[in-house]
Nucleic acid binder design. Structure first.
Length: 780
DNA sequence: GCACAGACTTAGAAGCTCGGGG
DNA sequence: CCCCGAGCTTCTAAGTCTGTGC
């Protein structure tokens, strides 16, 4: 029944439950209450963008449309003209729609004034677009029934009790068949009492597990959720781990300027090493990178250095590069003992700084190390690549912890920038980074209660969307006909977000980041309309750079109305103009918020990813196949989602090589098969001639050998296809962020696949909540 | 209603580890 | 035993979205 054996999870939950019951400290993962099941049936079909061989890099960094305002007016009047003819149709159908909406929505009073204002010039029945849908999932925090037993948690945290273990010697003594002396008797007695204690513990654990299944018991966890944005009541930690100080280069490593050796000041040298280390990277050949680096490097130079070093092209970092390569090689070559020592030191650091106490739980911290200084590596065509990321010092750091806790001491002789006690946020440490001026945080690991709960909540919102999605789709289809440009644009954008799982697309500050877009920020140049393409009507060809400058390329057939709308949106616009000039993410999300509590653009991505996985699993899993084949099906379902979400990766550097090795293996196998065939033929001839038992057996065995070889070949070929299909597709992101883990857990339980085959240790920790609550017939 | 700060999630790459095959 | 590569872990950039103040 339990699929989690070997994962260590089972015992952990038991431990947890027992402790809870017996009022001891809780130092383990949270247990979440069970949730009710969602209804079935979703008829959304798959839409898979085709992934191109290379991601391109946009070279454009032109100035954006300054005359938006002017254009708005132009478009508005045109829009009105165009719509005049359609108005009859539109108003009648929107009335229908309004009726149907009315039935379902229970709160009509929350009408938005703005919306009314927007629509003043038009139709009678505003189509009920903004009707608030009653909240259904109910995961706002319930009122706290019970007071936290110990709100002002003192820092006298009990460490896990030493296990009642004895040393090996004791045991050895006990097992010697000696005469029973008084001492032995004492020992035996002691052992007996320890056995009793052990039994008691086991009993406690089992009792805990029984209690765990009692729903009311589990609800205790819910009580821990706070209201009013409070995230915790107690928080104590050891502060961050700073990057190690700079170690100057040994004298034998020389930097050359214009062919002449030059000794650099430590400050200047450190920055030089950042560049030297990266010499093998493509970055260092890029003009922007070099320019930015050189500018920032010069700021770190002493006046004499600044006077001498005026041209980066005359700098020779070769020896620095060699030095670091040798260092990394030496690290690899270290002896077992040295490596073990290093590992232990690391572990010690982790034990000391890698955990914190948050509300009775010892929680793992995600990133307790401060980012070391270095050169900024933006993604894609980033205007700031190569800039110096400066070293973070204690006086840059803000510490967040609870009032009654032990504040982590800053390094001797130094001070924190600030110590605050803000329990409405989840971070422990923050600082401001110097490249974009944004704030960086130290937060908890995904396995923590605070992250797990949020994650669960995310999927619950997506499930709520599932219940309403038909209605929302009907609504945006209706809005394609709206007389208002704003509404039409919103409806078409939402259609793309829903159908193609595009991101919302916030506006970005120009020149600060790479030129990438999402749905709302698409520009005319990013789409191409084809009345007919590849034998299909009304095709839209997307080609743009999305998050992380990953190229999105897709040819999609759309409905005629969408097509016509796009033509309208593009009229009289320059390629660099916004496609949806009357829309931004704020407008869109405000609208979505009115349709469903908690609904934002990204919920569609979560919903569509999860529902796709569920459908694909149903479709692809063959009950008769073995575990390996089923896992292949799972991976295929996962891949379908990754394709939908456009999760790409650079083909692994070793890809070609490893493919080649595999191909060699395949070829060798084919040769073997050819040989085996010939041998079989020969044996058959022999048998025909001689007709004896020996020959018959020989034929049999040769036949078997051939079959085995053919089987092996097939497996290799499947492996090759699988690898080829995965060449540019990253499965991890969707697995970690978009797929409701309960779907996978349920699938595992249903087909008796060990969860470990689907989720590794870290993933199981992150999804502990789901492993705990999903049964085999869970429906997203 | 807009800009901006802040908080938090999502993302791919780089670095590291460990197990299987030669 | 060693080497290689897949898979795991770590790192931090780049998004989304909310709240606030003008």
């Amino acid at each position: 029944m339990n699929q989690m054996q070997g994962s260590g999870f089972k015992s952990r939950t038991f431990f947890c439950a027992a402790q809870l019951f017996f009022g001891e400290e809780i130092w383990c993962k949270p247990v979440f209450p069970l949730v009710r099941k969602a209804n079935r049936n979703d008829n959304r079909h798959l839409f898979l963008p085709c992934i191109l061989a290379d991601s391109h890099k946009s070279s454009k960094s032109e100035e954006k449309h300054k005359h938006k305002e002017h254009k708005h007016k132009e478009h508005k009047s045109k829009d009105r003209d165009k719509n005049r003819e359609k108005s009859k149709h539109s108003s009648s159908s929107s009335k229908n729609h309004s009726n149907s909406e009315h039935k379902d929505s229970s709160e009509k009073k929350h009408k938005d004034k703005e919306r009314e204002k927007d629509k003043d010039k038009i139709h009678s029945s505003g189509s009920g677009s903004g009707d608030r849908i009653k909240k259904e999932n109910g995961f706002t925090s319930p009122p706290r029934i019970k007071q936290e037993p110990n709100d002002d948690y003192t820092s006298s945290i009990k460490v896990e009790k030493k296990p009642m273990k004895r040393t090996r010697e004791d045991d050895d003594v006990d097992f010697k068949p000696k005469k029973i002396k008084l001492e032995d008797l004492k020992k035996a007695k002691k052992r007996k009492s320890e056995m009793v204690t052990k039994c008691l513990i086991i009993f406690k654990q089992q009792l805990g597990s029984i209690l765990k299944s009692w729903e009311g018991f589990e609800r205790k966890w819910e009580e821990e959720r706070y209201t009013d944005g409070v995230k915790w009541k107690f928080l104590e930690h050891k502060g961050p781990v700073f990057a190690p100080p700079y170690e100057p280069l040994p004298d034998k490593v020389t930097f050359y300027y214009d062919g002449k050796p030059m000794k650099l000041s430590p400050q200047c040298e450190e920055v030089a090493t950042f560049f030297g280390k990266m010499l093998d990277h493509e970055y260092t050949t890029k003009d922007i990178f070099r320019k930015n680096f050189f500018k920032d490097w010069r700021k770190e130079m002493k006046p004499e250095e600044k006077a001498t070093i005026t041209d980066l092209n005359k700098c020779n970092f070769e020896e620095i590069n060699e030095y670091f390569k040798a260092q990394s090689e030496a690290r690899k070559q270290k002896s077992k003992e040295e490596k073990l020592k290093l590992k232990e030191d690391n572990e010690k650091l982790l034990q000391e700084y890698g955990y914190c106490i948050m509300d009775n739980h010892k929680e793992r911290i995600a990133n307790f190390r401060i980012e070391p200084p270095g050169l900024f590596r933006g993604r894609g065509n980033h205007p700031k690549m190569g800039m110096l990321k400066r070293r973070i010092r204690p006086q840059d750091i803000i510490i967040n912890c609870s009032k009654g806790s032990k504040v982590p001491p800053p390094p001797t002789g130094q001070k924190w920038k600030e110590v605050r006690h803000d329990n409405k946020v989840t971070w422990l440490v923050s600082w401001t980074e110097n490249i974009q001026g944004s704030i960086k945080y130290i937060m908890l690991n995904p396995s923590s209660r605070i992250k797990g709960e949020k994650d669960w909540q995310k999927y619950e919102t997506a499930r709520t969307l599932k219940k309403l999605v038909d209605k929302i789709r009907a609504q945006y289809r209706e809005d394609w006909k709206s007389k208002e440009m704003k509404v039409r644009q919103r409806a078409v954008a939402l259609y793309f977000i829903d159908k193609l799982a595009l991101r919302a697309g916030n506006e970005k500050e120009e020149g600060e980041t790479a030129d990438t877009v999402g749905c709302c920020s698409l520009r005319v140049e990013h789409i191409n309309l084809h009345a007919e393409l590849d034998g299909q009507e009304y095709m839209v060809e997307f080609d743009f750079l999305g998050k992380d400058s990953i190229r999105y390329y897709n040819k999609v057939p759309v409905e005629k109305r969408v097509f016509k709308n796009l033509q309208l949106f593009m009229e009289n616009k320059q390629p660099e103009d916004d496609l949806f000039d009357r829309l931004n993410t704020s407008i869109l999300n405000k609208h979505l918020q009115e349709l469903m509590d908690g609904l934002t653009a990204k919920v569609f991505r979560t919903y569509n990813a999860s529902i796709t996985l569920q459908q694909q699993l149903k479709e692809l899993t063959n009950p008769d196949e073995n575990v390996a084949a089923k896992i292949l099906s799972y991976n295929r379902a996962n891949r379908a989602v990754a394709i939908l979400c456009n999760h790409q990766r650079a083909p692994p550097k070793t890809f070609e090589k490893s493919m080649q090795t595999l191909q060699t293996k395949i070829d060798a196998k084919k040769d073997q098969i050819g040989l085996a065939r010939r041998e079989l033929k020969g044996a058959k001839v022999d048998y025909k001639v001689k007709r004896d038992e020996k020959c018959r057996k020989s034929v049999e065995s040769k036949k078997k050998a051939l079959e085995r070889l053919e089987d092996q070949l097939m497996k290799l070929e499947v492996q090759a296809t699988d690898r080829e299909e995965n060449k540019q597709i990253a499965l991890g992101t969707s697995k970690l962020n978009y797929l409701d883990p309960r779907i996978s857990i349920a699938w595992c339980k249903k087909w008796e696949i060990p969860v470990e085959k689907i989720y590794n240790k870290t993933q199981r920790e992150k999804f502990a909540w789901a492993i705990d609550m999903a049964d085999e017939d869970y429906e997203f």
